[in-house]
Computed example of a mutant assay.
Amino acid sequence: MYTYIPKGVCSKKIDFDIKDNKITNVNFTGGCSGNLQGISHLVEGLPVEETINRLKGIRCGFKITSCPDQFAKALEELVLKKTDV
């Protein structure tokens, strides 16, 4: 289980797993419950890179980021860490 603390959004924490390069068990703490549950279900089983491509750059109102964008950042950080090892 991975945990990411998002910045600049309403959600306070994102927990998720990656198995065989696919997203599983995504759970946002805080934020817009219905929307974030929907995102969690929609990305379930998607490859990491595809999820990043779909979510990166989404904005929330006038903010420069969003909960989906923060999830993409979490995945990118994880991918970068794995390539650094």
Rank of each mutant, 00 (worst) to 15 (best):
M1T: 07
Y2I: 05
Y4L: 03
I5G: 00
I5D: 08
K7A: 09
G8L: 04
G8A: 05
G8Q: 08
G8T: 08
V9W: 06
V9D: 06
C10N: 03
C10T: 00
C10V: 02
C10A: 07
S11K: 01
K13H: 05
K13S: 10
K13Y: 02
D15C: 12
F16R: 01
F16D: 00
F16P: 03
F16A: 03
D17V: 06
I18K: 07
I18S: 03
I18H: 04
I18T: 06
K19Q: 13
N21H: 14
N21R: 09
N21A: 11
K22M: 15
K22R: 15
I23D: 07
T24N: 13
N25Y: 02
V26R: 03
N27V: 03
N27D: 10
N27I: 11
N27L: 15
F28K: 05
F28Q: 03
F28R: 06
T29W: 12
G30E: 03
C32L: 05
C32Q: 05
S33I: 09
S33K: 11
G34S: 09
N35P: 09
L36M: 06
Q37M: 12
G38Q: 00
G38Y: 11
G38F: 10
I39R: 03
I39T: 02
H41R: 15
V43R: 02
E44A: 07
E44W: 07
P47F: 11
V48G: 04
V48S: 06
E49T: 11
T51F: 11
I52E: 09
I52M: 15
I52L: 14
N53R: 15
R54F: 15
K56N: 15
G57C: 12
G57W: 09
C60V: 07
C60M: 09
G61M: 12
F62Q: 08
F62A: 12
F62H: 10
K63R: 13
I64C: 10
I64A: 14
I64F: 10
T65W: 11
S66Y: 01
C67M: 07
C67P: 01
C67G: 02
C67I: 06
D69M: 05
Q70L: 00
Q70E: 13
Q70N: 10
Q70D: 07
F71S: 04
F71W: 03
F71I: 04
F71T: 02
A72R: 08
A72T: 08
K73H: 13
A74L: 01
L75P: 03
E76C: 10
E77C: 11
L78V: 11
L78I: 12
L78S: 12
V79G: 00
V79Y: 03
L80Y: 14
K81G: 14
T83Q: 13
T83I: 12
D84V: 11
D84S: 14
V85K: 10
